[in-house]
């Protein structure tokens, strides 16, 4: 351990990773952290030497005309809505994704390969393009609207586009593969003889699923939830396009601060708050799933 050559070799081996992390992670984050405690400059940017906690205060309070602080829930509502939408997306993709993954895992080898290919086909096209496609589908007079109208079910105006519902639909569509694939991976490794053993001991199909398959798939489910929840929480262009850019979610709010609002410190502070919340979720996750089943 103490051998200087070993230490040097280890340092050299770690250097590329360390350097990458430092340049692309530590520096930007440090910059962001610093910005969040500065005063905004009038036309965007920051005053580099004017320290201020205003950005964090702004998240909670509004400054009244007489300079007194009054509680402002507008930003918290956006955070709450973001969490609800991301949470819904996670739940919905889980409910749709688990049976899908289970179905695929139960097929023979060739069918499985084909189905996985089908699941990954959407990745061949840019997500932005696919989101625009959803705009065409969802808008009033769009394919779904006129289709429903032709069946005599529509009232002429679907009124879904530019609502949280449209954002939720977009999330479920975009993130479903990120739920299916990790669950499939954990189910694929599953020893199905364990299910036979459960049947043998008197468990019916539902009990076997709940007591044996589900616990074994838990690491995959947890990974899928993370892969859906975190990107959904910070997602920007799905709510921007399908939600009509009405600052529906944190991502849009942050983008606004660096754009039209020209309040970089507030944008930085929002980013930091989001980061803190995601980290918190990660910590809860690792605590909860530390004793994951398996060897």
């Amino acid at each position: 351990m103490r051998d200087p050559r070993t230490v040097l070799r280890r340092a050299l081996l770690l250097a590329p990773t360390g350097l990458t992390l430092f340049v692309f992670m530590v520096i930007p984050m440090g910059l962001m952290g610093w910005m969040s405690v500065l005063e905004p400059d009038t036309y965007g940017g920051v005053r580099w030497h004017a320290l201020s906690l205003d950005a964090y205060v702004q998240f909670w309070y509004e400054r009244d005309l007489d300079d007194s602080l009054i509680l402002n829930t507008a930003y918290m509502e956006i955070f709450l809505r973001s969490f609800l939408l991301a949470g819904f997306a996670t739940l919905a993709t889980l409910v749709l994704g688990f049976p899908t993954a289970l179905y695929i895992a139960l097929q023979d080898e060739r069918t499985r390969q084909r189905l996985i290919l089908l699941i990954s086909i959407p990745f061949w096209t840019n997500l932005l393009v696919r989101t625009y496609a959803w705009m065409l589908l969802l808008r009033n007079g769009g394919l779904i609207d006129s289709g429903l109208g032709a069946l005599g079910l529509g009232s002429g105006a679907l009124d879904v586009l530019y609502t949280p519902t449209a954002v939720a639909i977009g999330f479920v569509y975009s993130f479903l593969p990120f739920m299916v694939l990790p669950i499939y991976t954990s189910l694929e490794k599953m020893d199905w003889r364990l299910v036979e053993a459960a049947f043998d001991l008197g468990a019916n199909r539902w009990t076997a699923l709940r007591r044996v398959v589900l616990p074994m798939a838990l690491p995959g489910i947890a990974a899928g939830c993370l892969l859906v929840f975190i990107p959904a929480l910070g997602s920007y262009y799905i709510p921007e396009l399908l939600g009509g850019g009405k600052s529906l979610m944190i991502g849009n709010l942050i983008q606004n601060q660096f754009g039209t609002a020209r309040n970089w410190p507030f944008g930085a502070a929002l980013s930091f708050t989001l980061l803190a919340l995601v980290l918190l979720a990660m910590i809860v996750y690792t605590r909860r799933f530390r004793q994951a089943p398996g060897e």
Partner: peptide, 8 residues
């Protein structure tokens, strides 16, 4: 079972 198939 031959493989025992114990629930891990």
């Amino acid at each position: 079972f031959q493989s025992y198939a114990l629930f891990p």
